[in-house]
Design a protein around this nucleic acid. Structure first.
Lengths: 228, 228
DNA sequence: TTTCCCGGTTACGAATCTGTAACCGAAACC
DNA sequence: GGTTTCGGTTACAGATTCGTAACCGGGAAA
C-alpha cells in the first residue's frame, strides 16, 4: 500500500482527488498549506507527493526544493499554469511530472501509478534476467537457483551487473569495488573474478559471460543467442 | 554522459530531435524500426529510450513491453495520439512518460532530464540524513564517518532503515533478514542488534534511536528535534 | 520480597572470508 | 625456440563473522 500526500488549497479539488485516490487503494493525507505539508512529511513519510504549484503560504516550487532535502518521494505538480516555461520550471525544481489543469482523473491515476511503480521498485534490485540481485538482503538468484556470495563477491558482481556491457581494467574494478588504490591489487581482483565465475557457473551453458577482452579489460554481459 | 535511443520513423522528426539532444550533450542512437531498436539496445544499452508509438513494423507499445525484459531504462512515448486513453495505455504498458505531439522541444528536453535524473540516481542508496547506506558497495556513513559493517549487520540495518518508523518483533526481523523460521532465532537477533547499536554509537547523542517498544518490538527511527 | 522472564551484553569457537603467493599455460615478444 | 608476461586457478593462513550460550539486571508476576 502506498501513502500519498495531496497538497492543494482548493477544497473542492482536494476532496475530489482524495476520493478518487482512496477508491484506488491509496492511503491519502492532505494539506492545504506548506506548513501543514511539512508536518505531515515528517510524521507520515509519503511515497508520492502531489503538489499544487500555487499555495496560500508560498509556491509549491519552494516546497518541492525543501522536500528534496528530507525525502526522495517523487513529486507530481498540478497547476493551472500550462505554459511550457511553467512546466519546465516545475521539472527543473525537482518535480518528477507536471500535469496542467484541466486534467482527466484517469490520466492523473495513471501517472500516479507510473511514478509509484518506478520509485516503489524495491530498493536495490538489479534485474538482468535470469540473474537477479537483491542488494537489500544480499540474495542472488540465477534461474531460480540461489547463489550464496560473500560480501566482496556480491559487491563485485553488483558493480559488474550494473554496468553490464562496459569494460573495466583490473585497476578500475579495484578502485570501484574496494574504493582505493593499491599496487598489488590485480591478484586480489583475479582471485575474486575466478570465484565469481565458479559460483555463477560461468563456463558452460550460462546465459552470461564475464570475459577478459583483448584490451585487457573485464566485461560482464548477457549472452545474446541468435543475433540475427 | 547519458546514452539515449531515439526510435522514430519520420526522418525529419528524428533528425531534429537527435540534433537538439546532441546539442545538450547526450549520446544519441537512432532507429526507425523495432528490429533496429532491439539490436541497438543489445549493442549499446541506452539510459533512456524515446519511443514513437507508431512504427512501420509494429507498435511502440509492444517494443516497450519487450524492453522491460532486458532493460530498466525509462521509456518516454511520443505520439500524435493525444487521447486520454492512449496516454493511459502508454503508461500502463511500461512507459514512464507520454508526450503528445505537437510538443515543445524544450519541454521534451526537460522531461528527458527529469527521467534521467531519477534513473541515474545511483541504485540502492538509502538516505536517512545524516545516515547514508550504499547497498551497491556496502558502505555506510554516519555524519561523514564511515561505519564498517559485516554483511548481516548491513542487511539488518538496511531493512530497519528502509522501514524506519515501523515496528518489528524479533521473529519478524529474523524472517525478514535471514529469510527463514527458526526457534532459537531471538538470541541471534539480539546479538546483532547489540552490535549494530554499538557500531552506530546509538546510545549517546545520536540522531537515531533503535528502540525496543513496550509491545516487544524493535523500531529504528530518526530523532526529531523541536517538532514545533 | 522473591521469583521468573526477557532483552542487553559479552565471550567463544567453528565456519567463512579474503588477500597473497605459488603454479600453470597460453600468447606475445625477442 | 626460448623467454617473458599475464590471467586463471588453487592453496593457505590470518582475520572476520556469526550463531550460541552464559551472565547480568530490570521489571513484572506471584
Amino acid at each position: 500500500m502506498s501513502r500519498i500526500l495531496l497538497v492543494e488549497d482548493e477544497e473542492a479539488v482536494l476532496l475530489l482527488n482524495k476520493r478518487h485516490l482512496e477508491k484506488n487503494g491509496y492511503e491519502v493525507y492532505s494539506a492545504t498549506t506548506i506548513k501543514q505539508a511539512e508536518a505531515i512529511i515528517w510524521e507520515y513519510p509519503p511515497d508520492l507527493i502531489i503538489l499544487d504549484v500555487m499555495l496560500p503560504d508560498g509556491s509549491g516550487l519552494d516546497l518541492c526544493r525543501k522536500i528534496r532535502d528530507i525525502s526522495t518521494a517523487p513529486v507530481l505538480f498540478l497547476s493551472c499554469l500550462s505554459d511550457n516555461s511553467d512546466i519546465i520550471r516545475g521539472l527543473d525544481n525537482g518535480g518528477d511530472d507536471y500535469l496542467p489543469k484541466p486534467y482527466s482523473i484517469d490520466v492523473l491515476l495513471a501517472r500516479v501509478a507510473t511514478l509509484l511503480r518506478r520509485s516503489k521498485n524495491p530498493i536495490g534490485i538489479i534485474e538482468l534476467p535470469p540473474l537477479r540481485i537483491n542488494l537489500s538482503n544480499g540474495k542472488v538468484t540465477l534461474e531460480k537457483e540461489e547463489i550464496l556470495l560473500s560480501q566482496k563477491e556480491l559487491q563485485l558482481l553488483a558493480f559488474l551487473a550494473q554496468h553490464a556491457g562496459c569494460e573495466y581494467s583490473s585497476k578500475e574494478l579495484y578502485n570501484a569495488v574496494w574504493g582505493e588504490d593499491n599496487e598489488t591489487s590485480t591478484g586480489t581482483v583475479k582471485a575474486h573474478i575466478s570465484r565469481l565465475r565458479s559460483k555463477l557457473h560461468l563456463n558452460d551453458m550460462s546465459p552470461f559471460e564475464l570475459i577478459f577482452t583483448p584490451e585487457k579489460k573485464y566485461m560482464f554481459l548477457k549472452v545474446r543467442f541468435s543475433p540475427e
